[in-house]
Amino acid sequence: MRTELDQVGPRLRAARQSRGWTLDDVAARAGLSASTLSRLESGKRQASLELLVPLTRILGIRIDDLLPAETADPRVRRAVERRDGMVIAPLTLEHAPVKTYKITYAPTTVVPAPRVHEGYEWLYVLSGRVLLVLDSTEHEIARGEAAEFDTRLPHSIRASADGPAEVISIFSAAGERIHTRVTDS
């Protein structure tokens, strides 16, 4: 099983090599034998502060530079929002460049007012049917079908009256702000 300390030696070697220095160059400056430095870089000798402090000073790096960066948790843990007959579940991290949501539309016969804004939207129907009104033309999009459109065209989306619809929607950043945030308009 690999540990974070297993990366100290290879990172130390990379720092030395990036400067074009030999084992003898660095070892002499740090007051170590070349064999001790070689064993440290290859992982055959355990790293200690006594060895690392002079080496990092000579190489112009921090001890933290020898350890792997903490990996961020990739899981999306954002709150589901319920609004206007929809359940909006975020599927991407908050600062992702493209936003993806699973949206469940309640069945309805009421056609929402069309919206116009900057951006693009891509949607895929997981279950049910949605009615997309795009530039005054209604398009029925059934389970397993997808649509892509420029949100600068007047548009609205709703589930058909015969049941709910689950959709994966992908928005450009501009489109996401309009569709998933509560606005004053």
Rank of each mutant, 00 (worst) to 15 (best):
D24L: 10
D25H: 09
D25P: 03
D25C: 06
D25K: 08
V26R: 08
A27E: 12
A27K: 03
A28T: 15
A30I: 11
G31I: 02
G31A: 04
G31K: 09
S33D: 10
A34P: 14
A34Y: 04
S35H: 00
S35T: 06
T36A: 10
T36E: 11
T36P: 02
L37E: 07
R39T: 04
R39L: 14
R39D: 11
R39M: 14
R39N: 12
L40D: 11
E41P: 05
E41W: 05
S42K: 11
S42P: 02
G43Y: 08
K44R: 15
K44D: 14
A47I: 11
S48F: 08
S48P: 07
E50R: 13
E50I: 11
L51C: 07
L51P: 00
L51S: 12
L52E: 07
L52I: 05
V53L: 12
V53P: 01
V53N: 08
P54S: 06
L55S: 13
T56I: 15
T56G: 05
R57T: 12
I61G: 00
I61W: 01
R62H: 08
R62T: 05
R62D: 02
I63D: 03
I63L: 08
I63R: 00
I63S: 00
D64P: 06
D64E: 14
D64A: 13
L66K: 03
L66A: 02
L66D: 05
L66G: 02
L67H: 06
L67N: 09
L67P: 05
L67F: 12
P68G: 06
P68Q: 08
P68S: 03
P68D: 02
A69D: 13
A69S: 10
A69P: 05
E70R: 06
E70P: 01
T71N: 13
T71K: 15
